[in-house]
Computed example of a mutant assay.
Amino acid sequence: MTVGNVTIGEAARRSGVSARMVRHYEGLGLLPAVARTESGYRQYGEADIHTLRFIKRSRDLGFSMEEIAELVGLWNNRRRTSSSVKRIAEKHLGELEQRIADMQSMRNTLAHLVHCCHGDARPDCPILDDLAN
């Protein structure tokens, strides 16, 4: 579908991000400066909305704003190498895997503590004992 120039609200709706985030991304330089009407209203075109969707999908995958800035730059650079993109994605994947491992360890520890706690009227509690160490 071809999109003519639309307001920030319509660009937000079509891209799935809030108008506040559209302004934020523009302020960070992730979007090029957009056209404005004579009265100063921002006007977004099809390419802007596509970029906003790209940013949203990147955020959904947990990329940092710094990584997204790099990815947008690579996406817009027709002379990029896919190895540059893969390097960013591999680094992020490794970070996600480490966070998952850390969370699984926390889960296992907490599950063990919950299992050990009687949860009765006595004051003894292995959960509190562990937290106090």
Rank of each mutant, 00 (worst) to 15 (best):
R57G: 13
I88P: 08
R20V: 03
S82A: 06
G4K: 12
S83W: 05
E90A: 01
H92L: 02
G16S: 10
D124Y: 00
R87F: 11
Y44F: 07
A12N: 07
T109S: 02
S83V: 03
V34F: 11
I88R: 00
E66W: 14
P126C: 12
A121E: 15
S82Y: 03
I49P: 03
R122D: 04
T2M: 15
S84R: 02
A11P: 09
G9W: 12
R80N: 02
I100V: 14
L52G: 05
E10L: 08
H92I: 06
A11Y: 09
G62T: 06
I55F: 07
E97G: 06
G119K: 13
L28V: 07
S83F: 01
D130R: 06
R80H: 09
L28E: 07
E95S: 11
T81G: 13
T81C: 10
E90N: 01
L28W: 04
R42D: 02
E95K: 10
E10M: 14
I8F: 14
S64W: 11
V17G: 06
Y44K: 08
E67N: 14
Y41L: 15
L71Y: 00
L110I: 02
A35K: 05
R57Y: 08
M65D: 11
D102R: 02
G94Q: 11
V22Y: 00
Q104V: 10
M65F: 09
H112G: 11
A111T: 15
C116G: 03
W75E: 01
H112S: 11
R79D: 07
N5F: 15
E46D: 11
V34C: 10
T81L: 15
P126Y: 05
A19M: 08
L61S: 09
I88A: 04
R87T: 09
G9V: 02
V22T: 01
N133V: 09
G45V: 10
A11E: 14
I8C: 10
V22F: 03
A89I: 00
S18I: 12
E67C: 13
L110S: 13
T7H: 15
I68K: 07
L74Q: 09
F54T: 05
L30T: 05
V3E: 15
L113Y: 06
T37F: 12
N5C: 13
A101I: 01
N76R: 00
L52Y: 08
N77R: 02
R99C: 06
I8L: 13
N5Q: 15
E26H: 02
Y41M: 06
V72S: 07
F63W: 04
R14T: 15
G40F: 07
L52W: 07
V114D: 10
R42H: 09
K56A: 13
I88Y: 02
I100S: 01
R42W: 00
N108T: 09
T7N: 09
L30I: 04
E38M: 14
Y25M: 01
L52T: 14
G9N: 06
A121I: 05
N5A: 11
H24F: 02
P123D: 13
L31M: 08
V22H: 03
